[in-house]
Design a protein around this nucleic acid. Structure first.
Ligand SMILES: [Zn+2]
Length: 303
DNA sequence: GATACTGTTGGCCA
DNA sequence: CTGGCCAACAGTAT
């Protein structure tokens, strides 16, 4: 009945993660793309210098890590929830980044950017950028330097992150198990990082629209069929978003602040209030849940 | 000029 | 335990 793929004529082309006003939200798919880009740019290369331009970004150990990182080689780069991890192949500590709302990791000349917080300077190499910048307009992002061996425990215990929703396949039983005892609305439950890590406000509305589930339903009231549709909608949203946004678009094009003014929205429902539902043409509605905007189609998301 | 709003996390409070 | 509100911050809309 409900196809988790987008239906109707697409509103897009610029990709999810971008608000209708051109702002950029680093949720799970965007952090995944940034990690892939960072790995592509820096894996196996020595760092010749790390500049902590804004010391307020340092939530623990980063300035010391930056001094010791000189000459060390970039190792694995990976994502956990909305966090990015940059390992060093020949040092015990990793750099951990959280982008909050406006943080991004880009290949750019730091002199030409206005909200630089950390600069990773790599030993020059033909074909790969020498300068990677943690750029963060609202300066709410965080960085830590932590022992690589203890990271999994840090994410679980200190950050209280639940399991990953992706890329491992999560069946209906997983969602029922993680969220099925929560009395909050399913939309609020989806954003609980301690139950499932990585889904944010945009993803929650988009996923529920794909699943055909009302955001107002109590999480503990969903039927098995609804958990099934949710289980299908989550990886569909994530992979669609990564595909749409992959490559260098995030890193190079939109990082320059390209305006989306006049462009169609990348979303099915997020910030599409008043526009016709891509599936049934009923107007998309907007309301607040726990202080956050929710967007949905009351006609085809069952309550 | 002032105020509201934006999304994420953590902290505080009832 | 729950759920709600606010701070942190900066830019944009009203
Ligand atoms: Zn609809």
């Amino acid at each position: 009945m409900f196809d988790v793929r987008r239906q109707g004529s697409p509103r897009i082309e610029s990709g999810a993660g971008y608000t209708s006003r051109g702002g950029w939200m680093p949720e799970l798919p965007e952090v995944e793309i940034m990690c892939r880009n960072l790995a592509r740019w820096s894996l196996g290369r020595p760092l010749c210098q790390v500049d902590v331009v804004d010391s307020a970004v340092d939530s623990g150990g980063v300035e010391e890590w930056a001094r010791k990182a000189r000459g060390r080689t970039v190792g694995r780069v990976w994502r956990r929830g909305k966090y990015a991890v940059v390992e060093l192949a020949d040092a015990e500590h990793s750099l951990v980044l959280h982008f909050r709302m406006t943080g991004k990791l880009v290949a750019a000349d730091p002199e030409r950017r206005s909200s630089v917080r950390i600069i990773l300077r790599l030993a020059p190499e033909a074909g790969r950028p020498d300068c990677l910048v943690f750029d963060d307009a609202r300066r709410l992002g965080n960085a830590w330097a932590l022992a690589t061996a203890e990271l999994q425990d840090w994410f679980e215990t200190s950050r209280k992150l639940g399991p990953e929703p992706w890329p491992v396949h999560r069946p209906a039983a997983f969602w029922a198990s993680q969220l099925g005892s929560i009395r909050s609305p399913i939309k609020v439950a989806l954003m609980r990082q301690d139950r499932v890590a990585g889904l944010g406000n945009i993803a929650a509305s988009e996923i529920l629209w794909r699943a055909g589930v009302s955001p107002t339903r109590q999480a503990c009231s969903l039927s098995l069929e609804q958990w099934d549709r949710l289980a299908a909608a989550v990886p569909a949203f994530i992979t669609d978003t990564i595909e749409r946004e992959g490559g260098d678009e995030i890193a190079y094009v939109n990082s320059r602040g390209a305006s989306s003014h006049g462009n169609p929205s990348p979303f099915s429902v997020y910030r599409c209030d008043g526009q016709p539902c891509p599936r049934c043409r009923a107007p998309i509605e907007r309301f607040k849940q726990s202080g956050r905007s929710t967007f949905w189609c009351a006609a085809c998301q069952e309550g």
